[in-house]
Amino acid sequence: MKTYKIGIIGCGNIAKKMALTLGGMKHVERYAVASRSKEKAETFAGEWQFTKAYGSYEELIKDPHVDLIYIATPHSEHYEHARLCILNQKPVLCEKAFTANARQAEDLLNLAKEHQVFITEAIWTRYMPLSQKIRELIEQGAIGKPYTLSANLGYVIQDKERIIRPELAGGALLDIGVYTLNFAAMTFGTDIEDMSSACRKTETGVDGQENITLFYKNGKMASLQASIYAQTDRMGVISGDKGHLIVENINNPQSVRLVDSNYNITAVYHAPAQITGYEYEVYAAIEALENGWLESPYMPHAETIRIMKQMDELRKSWGVVYPCD
């Protein structure tokens, strides 16, 4: 297998986490990083041993040696940056939320298909081994017939600019609520009959915390909670008529406990050792490139669009509007 030269657009904390990840991976090279500030890019490149540092995103995208570009800018910028990558035939791993709204997501994916360029959403939980194990346990009937799911995610991040500003597509939903929606989708599927929700908005008009309930046509129900004010336990519980699964940290599952109908823990499944957990999405992107795929089977384009539409519907019901809408 060839060594893939990775480029990163953006130099924030999430870019640093990806840089750390790449340093521990095989068949990848920390090749180039770009910022709107050349000085910031050079500092980042020096700290994380990247070969190239660019003072504009366009320069990195046009570098002929870059094999895959990871987009680590705010949600509001994903559309333009991914679009530029596609128009320059550069494969894209785009951080979640994929775009600010479903219209942008559909435009991007149609463009990628037209230009035959690989692109996938970097929603890391979709690619993790333990996420696959959870599905296997349910399909094998480990908890009998599943009926309810609860999941929460919350971090104290209300002071972060990218979270509170509508023009950056801020709010709890696109940053962390998206994980609860994906957890429910990976576990209970997409056959949703009804969705109800309520949110408490910030002074800037974005969603600060919310409760979302999904009702499925087969009788299942998912209760989801996200907050930018509270550090929650991040637990997920999937309950059936013969037991339940307890997932430690739905954002980066560390263990899954299987509990029987007598409330006895009968098995514990642990996540394999990881660098950060980001490596799985990078390896999935490389797998797709090696096979000539335009999307990853772990996060199909149709699922990205479906969840973006779901979040659009939620924001509309809350009156949370972005300038790009």
Rank of each mutant, 00 (worst) to 15 (best):
I14M: 10
Y269G: 00
S255A: 08
H301K: 03
H301C: 02
L173Q: 09
T120I: 04
A222C: 02
Y283I: 02
I8L: 02
S35V: 08
S255G: 00
T3Q: 09
S150N: 14
A172G: 11
E114I: 06
N262E: 14
L68V: 04
Y155E: 10
I238G: 09
E287V: 01
K17G: 15
V178A: 07
D312S: 03
V156W: 01
R257W: 03
E193G: 11
G208F: 03
I228V: 15
E167D: 15
R30M: 08
E80M: 12
Y229T: 07
P297T: 04
M299I: 03
L173R: 07
V33E: 07
E167Q: 13
T21I: 01
K160Q: 13
E139P: 00
G277P: 05
T266Q: 12
E167W: 12
S150I: 14
M1D: 14
S56W: 03
R135M: 06
L109Y: 01
Y229A: 06
D191M: 09
I86A: 09
V117N: 00
Y322Q: 09
C94N: 11
K16G: 12
E121W: 01
E106V: 08
I192M: 07
H27S: 14
Q231G: 13
A15N: 06
F118V: 02
V321Y: 14
E114H: 05
F44N: 08
A41W: 01
A226E: 08
Q158F: 13
L130K: 05
S76V: 07
T43Y: 11
I163Y: 13
I286H: 02
T120L: 01
L289S: 03
S296H: 00
T304I: 05
E58F: 00
D159C: 12
A53D: 04
L87N: 13
E77A: 10
L60F: 12
Q274F: 09
L68I: 03
T187Y: 03
S296M: 01
K38C: 06
M25L: 04
Q104G: 06
